[in-house]
Design a protein around this nucleic acid. Structure first.
Lengths: 348, 348
DNA sequence: TTGAAAGCGTTACCAA
DNA sequence: TTGGTAACGCTTTCAA
């Protein structure tokens, strides 16, 4: 029923091996032979059998991108960027076409592990873990083991926006400087003259939550300004909306609010507006997903460009209340994220 | 290096066939045997080789979800919902675990076809095409052929939010009633007394753009109200932002704007605010992704629940300007989306 | 209820 | 530069 390599080979009057070589462009093939093969491929509308290649080659062209919340535009932007960067890497004729797929963990550690297993099962070429992680030691250990296993099997692993996991997992790490980002935000508000600043933090056990809160406190301490009320909640709109009530209850005279995340900040803005408070007249709001970053990596082999938002610009805009989000989307800074290790898994 | 089925079989003192049967739960296996096998699996930390299974079984556990814009929360919500619905379908011990992966086409027909080919190559179990499509006949034909090919190969295809493609592709179709949705929105504004209504439409050659615009016009015609200015642009924030200037230039006395999409509506709101216009005092804004729908499907076999936004509620909120988005995210209506056809591809 | 063995469609090694 | 041909790890008849 379906066309196979052998069919193409027969039509082109060459061996299956030659067809494979033409398709993968790994070995020299005579131009005329190549033509004949390509013609046969087109005539037969041949589509290679992915599982078969993956089995034989011990690696697939799947790249998994794990995100905490696919409904959050931040992750959407990041995932989309990674996906197009990976996709266009193939561009040319060399069939090295990668299939970047995004997997939504919803922030759940179990689903994160499930997806990692699924990708391990697929012998994925690479896995990118996007965004902060849970700090629970048990989950960290489980993740660490899983990542080590993946690396051993030839899957390249990238941590993007989360600290390295314990143990040598062989993962490339792209760290966002969450502390500095938060510090900048709060310093900005302090510079505007604010002295009563509320803080809407993320879930208590996430790396991003802790680091950003630390940065916020550093800025306050450095300025000798007492810490205002803090409320924890998930990284979503509703959380920002609800937290605002708590914040105002604890200090009705707040003049500014820092949100640990843009989505949360939108909820804060909505809540303030419902209360008839204008932004930034009565209250200033600062939120971010836009972090200075530092790269902690790695011998080059495959290069992937990930656009990351620019920190200062966006934070500044939110803080001054010009609008909730820049109309054209956030500014973008290209970063080179380097994946380490050889492409193929060790054979036998 | 890696643990294989044979290793497990050896440790459990059974044949590979038996291990396979235990893992897939397709055939009767003695309870004691099963125990032994499961134990060996755990002890060896065995992870099945996906490509090998896919090759042997002629089908994989991959489900592709194609979306037009992964950075748009609408698609994020839809994709996330589909993903969790598909994922939890496995739940139990039967290893029927599916890997739902979202692919971002960016609205590009080429990338759409590329992803379809990639998924075809992977022998995906199912493909869901989410959101409106281009109306270009050439692309439609290409898509149609691709989908037919996929269906033949045993991949179930679902069109969600786009009209059926020409030809019998064997796809299940879930149609959103875009015309009625748009009609509702505009009727709502008319009921509020608006008579000068601008319209920010999507890209000219998309099904959703045309259908929504038609609904808008139907409502105006029915009320005997002359059509206001219309501007086309992509389905993003920037577009709404820029279009607003054009709209106001053509009719400075607009009292309401309809946006063909929530993301666009946010851009409109931002632009209006920049001009010092209050919402809805000076101008009302209505936008939607929240559509009444009708199901045009299909004999049941696999059932997937897709939460879809509720139409009236959200449109109403936007129109009354309570806020840009409901703080807790949109209301959700469960819909049963039925995938048709048998699970496995025809063999041989 | 279990085992033996024939594929599944590629890749990659070894020869030619 | 090309062909022949073992793997690759699993599924699934067919027998027992």
């Amino acid at each position: 029923m379906t066309v196979t390599l052998a069919d193409v080979a027969a039509r082109a009057r060459v061996s299956p091996a030659t067809v494979s070589r033409v398709l993968n462009g790994n070995y020299p093939v005579a131009a005329s032979t190549r033509e004949r093969v390509l013609l046969a491929v087109r005539e037969l509308d041949y589509v290679p059998n992915g599982p078969a290649s993956s089995l034989a080659a011990a690696t697939s062209d799947l790249v998994g991108v794990l995100v905490n919340d696919i409904a959050d535009p931040f992750f959407g932007i990041m995932a989309g960027a990674a996906q197009s960067a990976i996709g266009e890497g193939a561009g040319g004729r060399g069939g090295a076409e990668k299939l970047a797929v995004v997997c939504n963990t919803g922030g759940s550690p179990e689903r994160e592990l499930t997806y990692l297993t699924l990708l391990q099962r697929q012998r994925a070429a690479a896995v990118i873990l996007m965004g902060g992680s849970l700090e629970d030691p048990e989950h960290l250990a489980a993740t660490s083991g899983k990542l080590a296993r993946l690396t051993e099997a030839g899957t390249r692993v990238v941590l993007c926006g989360r600290p390295p996991v314990p143990g040598d997992t062989g993962a490339a790490v792209l760290v966002f400087d969450n502390r500095a980002g938060a510090r900048l935000l709060t310093e900005h508000l302090l510079a505007l003259g604010h002295r009563r600043i509320g803080y809407v933090a993320g879930p208590a056990d996430r790396t991003t939550t802790r680091h950003r809160l630390e940065g916020h406190r550093q800025a306050l301490a450095a300025a000798g300004v007492p810490e205002g009320p803090t409320v924890h909640g998930p990284y979503d709109r509703r959380s920002g909306h609800e937290a605002t009530a708590g914040l105002l209850a604890r200090d009705p005279d707040l003049t500014a609010v820092v949100a640990a995340n843009d989505t949360v900040a939108l909820g804060v803005c909505a809540a303030l507006r419902e209360r008839g408070l204008s932004i930034p007249g009565d209250v200033s709001v600062a939120g971010f997903d836009d972090l200075p970053f530092s790269v902690d990596a790695v011998p080059a082999l495959t290069t992937v460009r990930l656009p990351l938002h620019a920190a200062g610009a966006r934070a500044g805009r939110l803080a001054t209340g010009a609008e909730e989000l820049p109309p054209g989307g956030p500014a973008v800074v290209p970063v080179e994220l380097v994946l380490r290790g050889s492409t193929g898994a060790p054979r036998g």
